[in-house]
Amino acid sequence: MIRPYIPTDKPALIALLKLNIPQYFAETEETDFIEYLDEHLEDYFVMEEAQTIVGAGGINYFCSERLARLSWDIVHPEFQGKGIGTKLTQHRINHIRNNPTIDTVIVRTSQLVYMFYEKQGFALVHTEKDYWAKGFDLYQMRLPLRG
């Protein structure tokens, strides 16, 4: 089940992030994630299986640029490779498609995960070494929705 984030999900989401450190996130990103949940949250969704959060991901909007950005995608390590990330990504892309002011979806990820987004139709547009932290490069990707 995919549902909107509620504030009581925060401890479970922080625990979920920690399960992905250092494999997919740097330790320093925990503080950034907490700040995101507290101050930069727009649309954020969680995926539950048997009443346990197994994945999460957000959307931030830049309407003046006609852009939406997928943000803070996290999947429980035991559920990776089982379609959770794809379902969450497609759910958010479909959610964004309902907003006529958005033409393009972007995602900022790392060299560790960018191939997942390529499979979802995103194209690589920019890279930057050690952007997130040492050993975690920025891979910015783009998916046009219309014209």
Rank of each mutant, 00 (worst) to 15 (best):
I2P: 07
R3Y: 03
P4W: 03
P4V: 08
P4C: 05
Y5Q: 07
P7H: 11
P7Q: 11
K10M: 13
P11W: 05
A12D: 15
L13R: 09
I14C: 13
L16S: 13
L16E: 07
K18Y: 04
L19S: 14
P22N: 12
F25I: 11
A26H: 11
T28Q: 14
T28L: 06
E29S: 12
T31I: 13
F33R: 13
F33H: 07
I34V: 15
E35T: 15
Y36K: 06
Y36R: 06
Y36G: 13
Y36Q: 12
H40F: 13
E42N: 03
D43I: 03
Y44H: 11
Y44K: 01
Y44C: 12
F45S: 05
E48R: 02
E48P: 04
E49V: 10
A50V: 09
T52Y: 03
T52G: 11
T52F: 01
I53P: 03
I53R: 03
V54L: 08
V54D: 05
V54A: 06
G55T: 04
G57K: 07
G58W: 04
G58V: 10
N60M: 14
F62Q: 12
C63S: 14
S64R: 15
S64V: 13
E65G: 04
E65C: 08
L67D: 15
R69Y: 09
R69Q: 15
L70I: 10
S71R: 15
W72M: 05
W72F: 00
W72C: 06
D73Y: 10
D73M: 15
D73I: 12
V75Q: 04
H76R: 07
E78H: 11
F79T: 07
F79P: 00
K82N: 09
K82G: 00
K82P: 00
G83Y: 01
G83L: 02
I84E: 02
G85K: 02
T86R: 14
K87P: 00
Q90E: 14
Q90V: 10
R92F: 05
R92N: 03
I93Q: 07
H95K: 15
H95M: 02
I96W: 01
R97C: 06
R97M: 10
N99C: 01
N99R: 09
P100N: 14
P100F: 04
I102S: 00
T109M: 02
S110Q: 01
Q111A: 13
L112W: 09
M115G: 08
M115W: 00
F116M: 02
K119Q: 14
Q120C: 04
G121R: 01
L124G: 01
V125L: 06
T127G: 01
Y131V: 09
W132E: 09
L138E: 11
Y139R: 08
Q140I: 05
M141R: 09
M141D: 11
P144G: 07
P144Q: 12
L145Q: 08
G147R: 15
